[in-house]
Design a protein around this nucleic acid. Structure first.
Lengths: 229, 229
DNA sequence: ACCTGAACACCGTTCAAGT
DNA sequence: ACCTGAACACCGTTCAAGT
């Protein structure tokens, strides 16, 4: 009776003999990737694994623990750019791009990270903060700048821009705006935001250095190259 | 415990004789305000109203409909700054501040808005977009700039900064950073982000104008008469 | 050690029925 | 018109039990 469910799954969910954390995370990632995070339930997961509802609980504390593992699996795939990649802004862009690419292929994960569970992947956090420090922010502002990046990067994946309705009576901007809504892609959205925020950082840094001219204005020299979209 | 429902209405949940949409929204707002959006369930709501589980369904389509009404109720409280308040950036700041103040006192609402249900409150959307247009963005960029604002403003309420751990081995920034984590408030976080984004907008606008110097696009130039169709 | 099954306390929603 | 109650199809998780 209910021996091994080897033949039950008509849709590619084989089970060797034992469950494993890796298998569980993989299956969870699968569900998240094709049905979103909301559809990830312990019951559905165990069903897909061909196992009883409670079986995964042997390998995982609870649903939150599972989600943390999934997040970790996704984030561990991004590669940190080395110092040879360029100045802080170039490297920051590369890093952020890499994170975003990973999140784009795992809908629902951004939402989890937004809530603040990034602490699971400390290396990424460290890398971003170090770049911000290198940019010229002091301790307090490194934190705040990181928070801005965090919020935009992880928050944007929950935004469904398609539901935004263009105000048709925008003074002076009547007809020519509506068509733009459909030609704007998620990538444009992403690029504009990241560029805006980094430009804002630079402006803040410039203002900060104008305030206290004690230090050599060395870091403003970075401004030269800038990837034009 | 809360069976005050019958006749002696002490504080929150009295019931005259009939239910009403207003009562339902009020009760929902109450739950959201003190327990967060996750705790808002139709069953708990009806219990608090002293009514059967299905009673609210007579006034509301479903849970999503309820949430839309709640969002609308929260957002309808923000006052749009008039043209006399100042230039576009000042007015944008005022408007955003007003929205944020409302969201701060209704935890969970930001999360809903983030997903794109702002379409329920068109006036706010119109006001922001008009300010961005006045700032000098063209149709496509108005949309993108709005999206950035939207993401940050509504996304930030889901971010729990307290869980962020400061990298202790940050090169050159060892000890003096950690204490900052506790002194940074949600308000600092908010201010830094909004300032960064607005500064980023200005930088983008400046770059845009440097590109095409023929047009004298001054920020207050758009006060249109220009009837639509 | 590894997994199952029943059970508990929740959900949103449908549907027939009551007044 | 307005509301109730039972029922259905879900949740996450506890706990005792099986192998």
């Amino acid at each position: 009776v209910a021996q091994v469910a080897a033949g039950a799954g008509a849709s590619g969910n084989r089970r060797a003999s034992q469950l494993s954390r890796g298998q569980i995370v993989e299956a969870a990632l699968n569900i998240v990737q094709e049905s979103g995070l909301d559809s990830l339930s312990m019951r559905r997961l165990s069903k897909q694994l061909g196992v009883s509802t409670m079986a995964p609980y042997y390998y995982v504390d609870d649903k939150n623990g599972l989600i943390e593992l999934v997040v970790e699996a996704v984030l561990s795939r991004v590669e940190l750019p080395g110092p040879e990649a360029g100045a802080w802004d170039v490297r920051l862009r590369l890093l952020i791009d890499a994170v975003d690419a990973e999140l784009r292929s795992h809908p629902g994960i951004g939402e989890v990270l937004l809530a603040g569970i990034l602490s699971t992947h400390q290396e990424l956090l460290d890398a971003v903060m170090e770049l911000l420090f290198e940019a010229g922010f002091d301790g307090r502002d490194v934190l705040l700048a990181y928070a801005v990046l965090h919020t935009y990067l992880f928050g944007r994946h929950k935004v469904a821009m398609s539901s935004v309705e263009i105000p048709l009576d925008l003074k002076g901007a009547p007809d020519w705006m509506a068509p733009h809504l459909h030609e704007v892609t998620g990538r444009d959205f992403y690029a504009f935001g990241v560029e805006t925020i980094i430009a804002g950082f630079k402006a803040k840094l410039a203002a900060q250095e104008a305030g206290k001219p004690r230090r050599s204005a060395r870091s403003t020299a970075v401004k030269g190259r800038r990837p034009r979209s």
